[in-house]
Design a protein around this nucleic acid. Structure first.
Lengths: 169, 169
DNA sequence: TGGCTATGTCAACAATTCTGACATATTATC
DNA sequence: GATAATATGTCAGAATTGTTGACATAGCCA
């Protein structure tokens, strides 16, 4: 995803944007409303399984990085292991994910989606991808670049690095 | 993470983009991580008051539309009145907001921030505005435009209308 | 007057998160 | 080989936020 370096514009001086508090408040509200809409499609699907967003997030990132360890998943999700374990236990009981003992380090557990898990993931992901695709197309390619640049800059550096590292596994 | 550029493909009136699933997944993850970062600053402040995000949202929208009715706030927040009332009661007990009987329709209650409420709002808002301002400046004006366009298009029409109506009150 | 609207409240329940404590297996280090 | 550190798992209790359902009051309107 290294299109362009996101941070350093002109070393020394930043482009001087005049941003009123009202413009910034609008941006804040856009984030609030868009995020809510953005999660509404998967939420409806999850209801049918009586799963919540925590289950969705686990499924998403296990799909994104098959064989991910519990520790790595905890780092990405930013929750406690107790919290994740409740979700993980349920997903394992339901046959959505499986856990394999690590070959190099036998303390580690590597998580994978089962066929059922992949099916659910596709359903959830499809709903969100459809919305993203429609929004991208309606906004146009330049807007997409800008969207990504702003979101990346909203993150602090450690999280930005983490987000960028995800496709690389 | 293969960097597939977002390629504009001409066809018809709307700009057609060729979007891989991977690009869309990246967008989805950007939303997830950016939103989490975006809420982290106010979360830290709220902790000191033992308030949660529900309190923040109420404060935000009451500040944005002083004198807003309970019903309107419920519509914006998309929660039940029981859920909002728990938050409202606490904020009123703490002297952060006040409620005034409507002059035209005496059934309505109009909500306002008190001086304490405004002080807290400024604190919360300042943290988020600072982050937004920094992101906007780093990304540049064109990116901001694109950011807003994509987020608006992520919303379904009713919510988009609602979001747009907010500055107008 | 009767019906609808706006608001408020009580109670019970569910989901998600946290902290803290404790346990086990495995790896790394001295 | 003994000890420390790491990775994982579990139990228990608490806080926040959300839900449904039921019920009550006040005020507007036809």
């Amino acid at each position: 995803m290294q299109d362009q370096p996101v941070i350093p514009r002109q070393a020394g001086r930043e482009p001087h944007l005049f941003l009123t508090d009202d413009q910034l408040l609008q941006g804040i509200e856009l984030m609030f409303f868009a995020y809510r809409e953005f999660t509404s499609d998967p939420d409806r699907i999850l209801e049918r399984f009586r799963y919540g967003r925590a289950h969705h997030r686990a499924i998403h990132f296990i799909n994104r990085s098959p064989g991910i360890t519990v520790n790595r998943l905890l780092t990405i999700l930013g929750v406690t292991k107790q919290s994740l374990n409740r979700v993980r236990r349920r997903l394992m009981a339901d046959g959505m994910i499986i856990s394999r003992v690590g070959t190099e380090d036998r303390r580690e557990r590597h998580l994978y989606l089962t066929e059922s898990g992949r099916a659910l993931e596709r359903q959830l992901s499809e709903a969100q991808r459809r919305r993203m695709r429609a929004a991208y197309r309606a906004a146009g390619p330049d807007a997409v670049q800008g969207f990504r640049r702003v979101l990346e800059n909203i993150m602090d550096d450690p999280v930005r690095q983490l987000a960028r590292s995800l496709g690389e596994d």
